Amino acid sequence: MTNTGRVAVVTGGSGGIGRACVERLAADGFSVLIHFAGAKDRAEETASALTRAGVPAVAVGGDVADEAAMTAVFDIADRELGGVDVVVHTAGIMPLAPIAQMDLDTFDHIQRTNVRGTFVVDQLAAQRVRKGGSIINFSTSVTRLHIPTYGAYAASKGAVEALTLILARELRGRDITVNAVAPGPTATPLFFKGKSQEAVDQIANANPMQRLGTPDDIAETVSFLAGPARWVNGQVLHTNGAMA
């Protein structure tokens, strides 16, 4: 791995899609700050493995919706890694229930983490990311698929898309791209949780590619947006194998 001197902050970087993004960006030559909310051991294990491989990396915890906690995350990126060039905001939660049955406290928790959390991270990114950098948010293909029980989650990701498209235009003249990645069903522990093998197979076969996405599929799109994709700006990239 040849370090380029560029620095990426990846929220939710301790597992699943987030960890795949961390590893891909490290392979692309980025130093990486691995943010975590609860999985401290996994984040620190990833950071240690990258450090042993010669990649500057640090694991830092914090609530994405807490502006003080996330300011501290960006401060550590500045102090220990030398700045911020790319922010990949994968952190989010996905409790599911029919709209008629969802507890409003759960609904509020989803919006706080997914919407306020994105606003807090994007606000700091807009202030800290250097010229030539990228801000990459995460939406979902469920905003197109309209699957029952995903109402609160899809609503939060619709807000993420709106924030993404507006911020791209607000950063006019800064040479900073702002985009969102909208994965389809992806083979992560979060996806498999609570699903039977029959349900998993049915979802996989519904895709024209006849499989689930993988975290590496999504990380490839992030790598593109973080690197060569300088003319892709203010877009939502549905990375789903034509699922929607």
Results as ranks from 00 to 15, higher is better:
Q210W: 04
L190N: 07
H146E: 09
T186Y: 07
G132D: 14
I176T: 03
I99F: 10
E198N: 13
T51D: 02
N3W: 02
H238K: 00
T46H: 09
A8R: 06
T186N: 08
A155K: 11
P189C: 02
G54T: 07
A72K: 13
F224P: 03
T186A: 01
F224A: 04
A155E: 11
V200G: 03
T214N: 12
A242I: 05
T140Y: 00
G13I: 03
D75E: 12
G158H: 10
G12F: 03
R230C: 04
L190T: 11
M94Q: 15
H89Q: 07
H109K: 15
V55D: 07
A47E: 14
Y150Q: 13
F36Y: 15
D175S: 15
M1A: 09
G18T: 05
A168E: 05
I218D: 02
H109A: 15
Q111P: 07
V73D: 01
G184E: 08
G132Y: 13
G82E: 10
F36R: 13
D216V: 11
A47P: 08
A242L: 10
E161R: 09
E80Y: 02
H35Y: 09
H89E: 03
M70R: 04
R230H: 10
V181Y: 12
F224Q: 05
M1D: 09
K193T: 09
A125K: 13
N233Q: 04
G194L: 02
I147N: 09
D122H: 14
I34M: 08
R79S: 11
I93N: 10
R144M: 01
